[in-house]
Simulated scan of single mutants.
Amino acid sequence: MEEEKTIAEPKQIKGNNEVVIEIKDLKKAFGSNEVLKDINLEVKRGENVVILGRSGVGKSVMIQCIVGMLIPDDGTLKVLGAEVAEMDDEELKELRMKIGFLFQSGALYDSMTVRENLEFPLTRVLKIDDQAELDKRVEEVLDSVGLEDAIDKLPSDLSGGMRKRAGLARTLIINPEIMLYDEPTTGLDPITSREISELILNMQKKYKTTSIIITHDMECARITADRVVIMDDGKYIEEGTFDSLKKSKNKIVQLFFKDIS
């Protein structure tokens, strides 16, 4: 028998009700494989929304649709008030400058130092060529993520947690309005995972970003989430605060929280 769908009342976020990401009846299939089935989601400015779901349920496909890397088959997807599917190449480029995307690997250039990795988007995207301004921005963001002593190191000289911090710094350096995190704690030990989760929360507060965090790490979800959305079989089946979902009667939701005290 199908579980009854229940939606918990989300926590009010910092008094701001502006919707930054609006998704309605979104569908995406690859051949006969329906990955997204009637996805509906609103994310408000300044909110951290965690998407929880098992592997292969469509979590990463959804955020690729948000940045226009994939085009939905049906439904609407608005980011910062504009319909993504209707944007031309120039409009998509402008949108992506407002969105930070932290990949699982950190996506650093191996041949560049941390300084050079951070200068790259400033010179290529923002067209900043004043070295004093570059130094100031790089040093400020590295200080924010606690990585100022690694400024002249290569990625190969960094631990996994340090690479995550460097990747986050490079994403934040162009002051994005929206952050998308794809499994930000994957491959890290529990202590480092907690540090990265707390850093995500601190960056939300400091830079006032709106974030979607895809994770299967329950501790990351507990630390970072203003609201948690559970995804299964291409749909969102329940949402609410971390604590409210612990009390859910939905058997699929219970699987995520069964070891949470």
Rank of each mutant, 00 (worst) to 15 (best):
T171L: 10
M203G: 10
M1E: 14
I178L: 14
L122G: 12
F120W: 10
I128F: 02
R194Q: 14
G234S: 01
L255H: 06
K78N: 15
K164S: 09
D143N: 12
M97D: 12
I178V: 15
I66Q: 09
H216D: 11
F120S: 11
K247Q: 12
E133R: 00
E177V: 05
K235A: 15
S32C: 05
D110R: 01
E148M: 13
K208C: 10
E3P: 05
T209M: 12
D143G: 14
M231R: 06
S60K: 02
A150M: 14
M62E: 06
F242N: 05
E177N: 09
L41T: 02
T186M: 07
G58S: 04
N250R: 00
D226C: 07
G167D: 06
D157N: 14
R194C: 10
I191S: 12
N117K: 05
G53E: 09
L142N: 03
N117I: 08
T209C: 11
L118A: 07
L80C: 08
R96T: 06
G68I: 06
E239K: 09
F103I: 07
I214R: 11
Q204E: 10
V61H: 04
K24H: 13
G234M: 03
L172V: 10
G167W: 00
Q12I: 15
M87G: 05
N117R: 07
M162T: 11
I151V: 15
L26D: 03
I39Y: 00
I237G: 13
S55D: 08
S244H: 03
F242I: 04
E18Y: 00
V253K: 02
L92V: 04
K235P: 05
E2T: 04
L52E: 09
N250E: 12
E139M: 07
I212N: 06
I21H: 08
T186Q: 11
D233H: 08
N175Y: 11
Q131V: 11
K246R: 09
T186N: 14
A132Y: 02
D189V: 04
D73K: 00
E2Y: 05
E195Y: 01
G75S: 07
Q64P: 00
K93Y: 09
I178G: 12
I13G: 13
